[in-house]
């Protein structure tokens, strides 16, 4: 048997599930009033995006998405929430709040409609011959050969960011 039964159905359903997870997580991240729920929405959205990366033939990036976004970014944001307590006081509703909501909705709808139209209608060129297979091994080779300078630069950026975060967060704290 070389063909799993109902293989197409299963794969297509998993793909649609990934798309639904991404969309639902993104909506949850911006619509809820509680910030903690917004972070949960971001995490759900990142799970969906990891699935989409898997369907784009890149399991390595799917794992990195979960590792970096859920494991580092969401956890760091939750630390920030615990330290800064953004939900402590609720703001009274103003008329301008509704106005800004309408403006934001219009801007979002216009961007979504315009970019989708561009992406669907654009005359995309047919890809030329593939020069590599895009495997994890190929990523590693090009990171350490073609893009070694950018690789070093991004490590420097991360180092400076960690140092800067420590310095900024430490300023103003009295010595124990």
């Amino acid at each position: 048997m070389d063909h799993f039964p109902a293989q197409d159905l299963i794969v297509g359903t998993v793909f649609l599930l990934c798309v639904a997870t991404t969309v639902a997580g993104a909506l949850l991240a911006v619509i809820t009033t509680r910030i903690v729920r917004a972070v949960c929405g971001l995490a759900i959205c990142c799970v969906g995006i990891a699935g989409l990366y898997y369907f784009l033939h890149s399991p390595f990036l799917a794992l990195m998405e979960i590792l970096v976004y859920i494991g580092a970014v969401c956890v760091t944001i939750i630390f920030g929430i615990m330290l800064a307590e953004p939900d402590l006081t609720y703001e009274s509703k103003r008329d301008t709040t509704v106005l800004w909501g309408i403006v934001a909705l219009l801007a979002g709808a216009a961007i979504c409609w315009g970019l989708s139209r561009l992406g669907l209608q654009g005359p995309w060129p047919a890809p030329p011959a593939q020069v590599s297979d895009g495997s994890t091994k190929a990523i590693g080779v090009s990171l350490l050969s073609t893009y070694s300078m950018a690789f070093e630069a991004i490590s420097l950026v991360l180092f400076v960011a960690i140092l800067g975060a420590l310095v900024i967060a430490r300023a103003g704290r009295t010595k124990a």
Binding site: T22, V23, A26, V30, C45, L52, G108, C112, G119
Partner: peptide
């Protein structure tokens, strides 16, 4: 994928 990416950008700007 392009439509989902456009939707994510729109949701991000809305937020």
């Amino acid at each position: 994928f392009l439509v989902v990416a456009a939707f994510l950008l729109a949701v991000g700007i809305y937020g």
